[in-house]
Design a protein around this nucleic acid. Structure first.
Lengths: 148, 148
DNA sequence: GACTTTAGTCTACAACTGTAGATTATAAAA
DNA sequence: TTTTATAATCTACAGTTGTAGACTAAAGTC
């Protein structure tokens, strides 16, 4: 089983969120924080930290004990990477509509909304009238999809 | 290892895209289509179909042979469900900015953009000035995140 | 009816994930 | 210095996923 690009699992992602927020953290700190949200054992958290290091998402300050773990990727980078992958895996033709639905229930600040509006407005001029379905190799099959 | 909600894996998702597009399909059809995009063996595709059935994402018309497989969930439902899960796993405070970045490179039609704009405009009135970071249990920790 | 094709089912297996106990080593306390 | 607490490492194990060969059973062909 040849695994392509390493990705963070959902559990690993939760650990990263804590470390991203703190900037750097010891395993003890992560364990302390996670204890409030989950019932994971300290061992589980240490395992996840080790795996995150193996995957290259964390480094450490080299201390033998009370070691500090640091992210090698910014949270923001990781988020856009994940979202891009997610969108790319989906039917290009349907992404827009799905986004409409999801945005409706996603909490966004006025600031976020303004930025999104700016982005959309900028895109509008160059935007095509329709995006082709890319679910199947052939172009004409996209029509079938459309007719669904 | 107690698995929560069943989810589609990326490989399974690719199979579903074909079947969603065709509306219903025999394994042979799926194999034929996938042969153009991947080098998966017919066996692999049959395994994936079986797993999708086990997970409840596909049913079939009961035929002994040349059986037709049908989605039990609309593509659109599956997409919004996946996107919701993805967003919920991420820092609520950062989602807006990440979306700005990703939308910039996501192909959208004029129609999509208009709809998104409508949605955003509707949200604006009730939108808060800021979304709190939900990476850690305590409220004050969100400040640390903000200061990053 | 024997033969060929191929759809569907079974079995397989390694890597990845979720989850965590056992062991080792280091620093702090007594 | 012996003891104690606990980081860090090792080992473990079942369920999931990627990937596919082997086997069984229909359906069509000669």
């Amino acid at each position: 089983m040849v695994k392509q690009t390493q990705t963070m699992t959902t559990s690993e992602w939760e650990i990263m969120r804590v470390i991203w927020t703190l900037g750097e953290a010891t395993s003890r700190q992560v364990i302390r924080v996670m204890a409030k949200k989950t019932d994971w054992s300290p061992s589980t958290i240490k395992t996840l930290i080790t795996r995150l290091q193996a995957k290259g998402y964390l480094t450490d300050n080299g201390a033998i004990r009370d070691r500090l773990y640091l992210p090698t990727v910014a949270e923001h980078e990781a988020m856009t990477a994940t979202l891009s992958r997610t969108f790319h895996a989906m039917c290009a033709m349907c992404v827009g509509q799905a986004l409409v639905d999801v945005l409706a229930t996603t909490p966004l600040s006025k600031h976020d909304i303004t930025h999104l509006q700016d982005t959309l407005q900028t895109k509008y001029a160059q935007a095509p009238d329709r995006i082709a379905c890319d679910c199947m190799p052939h172009q004409q099959e996209e029509i079938a999809h459309h007719d669904k």
